[in-house]
C-alpha cells in the first residue's frame, strides 16, 4: 500500500495522488499548479484533506477514515520552503535551537553548532534574519529543520532563488543527510542533479513514478514541454 494517499478538493482543483516515499530522497516533480506544495502541506499537517492516509516509518500520521490526524509538531517532519520562514526577531542560533528546546542546554548548543556547520553557516550564529542573504537564510532554515532529527524532510523548492554555486553546495550537503527527503521542484535542470526516484505530478494526479530516466522516457513529450515553459 502506498505511504501517501490523498483525495482533496480545493475549489476547482482536485488532488488525487497515491505514491510511496523512497528510503532516502524522493523528488516530487511537476509543473506549477500541479498540487506539489499542497501535498507537502498535507503531509506536514498544515492542511487537512477531505480524504487521505499517510504513513511514515510505520507510523500513521493521517487516516481520515479512522479520524487520525497527528498534529504538525508531533509528526517528526521538517519543512523548508523557498521563503525560508526564519523567525526575524531571533538570531540564526536561536532559530536553529527553537525546535530542540527539550534538550539540555549544553546538548542543545552542541546540536545547534553541529547543524549550522553541516550547512556551512557556523559563521552566522549571532546574526538575525534581516542581516542574512537569501542563501544564508536557506542554510539556517535547513539547519533548523534538520536539528530535531525529523523522520522526513519536506523541501519545497528550497534552492529556487539561489545562485548555482550556493544551490549546488547546499544540495550536496542535503543529499548527504541520513534523513528521508521529499524534494519538490518544477525545474527539470534541478532534478537532473538529484539521484533519486521521481514522482511526476500533473493536474493533481501522479502520472509516473520511478527513476528519472524511466519517467523521462515515458513522458518525453510532456517533460520537454515543461522544459520549454
Amino acid at each position: 500500500m502506498p505511504d501517501v494517499q490523498i483525495r482533496h478538493q480545493q475549489g476547482h482543483f482536485t488532488l488525487d495522488a497515491d505514491f510511496s516515499l523512497g528510503s532516502r530522497c524522493t523528488v516530487l516533480f511537476g509543473p506549477s499548479g500541479s498540487g506539489k506544495s499542497t501535498i507537502l502541506r498535507i503531509l506536514a499537517g498544515l492542511i487537512a484533506p477531505q480524504q487521505g492516509r499517510v504513513t511514515l516509518a510505520g507510523r500513521t500520521l493521517l487516516n481520515t477514515d479512522q479520524r487520525i490526524a497527528v498534529p504538525p509538531g508531533r509528526r517528526s517532519i521538517g519543512y523548508v520552503t523557498q521563503q525560508a520562514g526564519l523567525f526575524p526577531h531571533l538570531t540564526a542560533r536561536e532559530n536553529v535551537a527553537f525546535g530542540i528546546r527539550h534538550l539540555e542546554r549544553e546538548a542543545r548548543d552542541r546540536r545547534v553548532l553541529e547543524m549550522l556547520r553541516l550547512f556551512g553557516a557556523e559563521s552566522l550564529t549571532h546574526r538575525r534574519t534581516p542581516q542574512l542573504s537569501g542563501g544564508e537564510r536557506q542554510r539556517v532554515a535547513l539547519a533548523r529543520a534538520v536539528a530535531p532529527a525529523p523522520d522526513l524532510l519536506l523541501l519545497d523548492e528550497p534552492l529556487a532563488a539561489l545562485d548555482d554555486a550556493s544551490s549546488q553546495d547546499i544540495l550536496s550537503r542535503l543529499l548527504a543527510l541520513p534523513t528521508r527527503v521529499l524534494y519538490v521542484s518544477h525545474d527539470l535542470a534541478e532534478i537532473w542533479r538529484i539521484p533519486a526516484d521521481v514522482v511526476f505530478l500533473e493536474h493533481g494526479r501522479v502520472t509516473a513514478t520511478g527513476p528519472l530516466q524511466h519517467v523521462l522516457a515515458s513522458h518525453r513529450e510532456r517533460l520537454l514541454h515543461q522544459l520549454a515553459i
Partner: peptide
C-alpha cells in the same frame, strides 16, 4: 505576523 512563521513554529513543536 506572517502566517508561515506560525506554521514553522507549530512544525517545530511549539504549542
Amino acid at each position: 505576523v506572517d502566517a508561515s512563521l506560525i506554521e514553522q513554529a507549530r512544525l517545530l513543536g511549539a504549542g
